[in-house]
Nucleic acid binder design. Structure first.
Length: 299
DNA sequence: ATGCAGGAGAAAT
DNA sequence: ATTTCTCCTGCA
């Protein structure tokens, strides 16, 4: 269990609770903001984070009793973060509806990560982030996005910039995108930017379409396969049934669930069927638990 | 050092 | 309908 630092920045002025009933441990807040569903936040202390969301720069922190606090140097109203944190969604109830009673692996993960939730990110930003994510580690993805924001995005405050819009990216030559540590992903980014120039509302539309149609629309984009589509659908599209199968989840299913020689598409199908309509939330618990096991191994 | 890290797409079985 | 290869790059 982490110790709260005495006299940390969270005791300063200007902090507003994001929601009075919204309490988290430092570890769970870290998993939510810096565990791989978003790449927008950097730790600025043991319980404080800085970054951009919803067009504003923010500091997010945790009070001693676990209340999530926020303040914005650009004047953003913390009410904007109630939507970002999806506080209208009762994740405790959704978690209770998961099959943890008959699934000891899931039960243990749920026990270890109380309060874990799925953010409601901007679909256009999530698409860019996960398009950059293939065979990259979180720190590397964040570096690419930081370079994009710094060079092509709107300045918000200090060193914080917003991510560039797809319209802005469409005007950037591919070889210039490639100079920002994107590698072969530059071709996909340029192609998606060109495609979205004709369908600028595509990212937002995934929220109003049923899951299969929204997924088909995303996977039709160059460089977007099922895994990236499911990440965008889950973390920004409001489709909590989406079950992204990355190498972590594949390993969990193959070892803990004894599905050793199951191919990827079948693993995804298993996840959807076994975990049900909010399979994506189960995926997040299992992912956090797997990451924690690795972190403990490394120590 | 060589593999590999939260993949996708096309080619080759 | 699967499996293999290529695509960039930095970190272990």
């Amino acid at each position: 269990m982490e110790q709260l630092p005495v006299g940390n920045a969270v005791n300063g002025t200007g902090w507003t609770p994001v929601d009075l009933d919204f309490r988290l441990s430092p570890a769970v807040l870290a998993e939510i903001l810096d565990g791989g569903q978003t790449f927008a936040w950097d730790a600025t202390g043991t319980t404080t984070y800085g970054g951009a969301a919803r067009g504003h720069a923010w500091e997010i922190g945790l009070s001693a009793d676990g209340t999530v606090l926020a303040r914005s140097p650009t004047g953003g109203d913390p009410i904007l973060l109630t939507d970002y944190f999806a506080l209208d969604t009762d994740f405790a109830a959704l978690t209770d509806a998961l099959p943890w009673r008959s699934d000891p692996v899931l039960a243990k993960a749920v026990r270890q990560w109380p309060g874990l939730r799925i953010l409601r990110q901007d679909p256009a930003e999530a698409l860019l982030g996960f398009l950059c994510s293939s065979t990259k580690q979180i720190v590397q993805i964040k570096e690419i996005l930081r370079l994009f924001a710094r060079h092509f995005g709107k300045h918000l405050h200090g060193a914080t910039h917003a991510l560039p819009s797809w319209e802005t990216l469409a005007a950037v030559p591919e070889d210039e995108l490639r100079r920002h540590k994107t590698g072969y992903r530059a071709r996909y980014i340029a192609a998606v930017a060109r495609r979205l120039a004709d369908w600028p509302d595509l990212p937002l539309r995934i929220r109003s379409l049923p899951y299969p149609e929204a997924r088909a629309m995303l996977t039709d984009l160059p460089g977007v396969g099922g895994k990236i589509a499911d990440c965008v659908l889950l973390f920004a599209g409001g489709h909590l049934g989406a079950f992204p199968v990355d190498t972590w989840i594949a390993n969990v299913l193959r070892t803990e669930y004894h599905l050793a020689d199951w191919p990827l598409p079948q693993l995804r199908r298993f996840g959807e069927v076994h975990f049900g309509p909010h399979a994506g939330l189960a995926q997040q618990y299992l992912f956090a638990a797997a990451r924690r096991r690795r972190a403990l191994r490394v120590l």
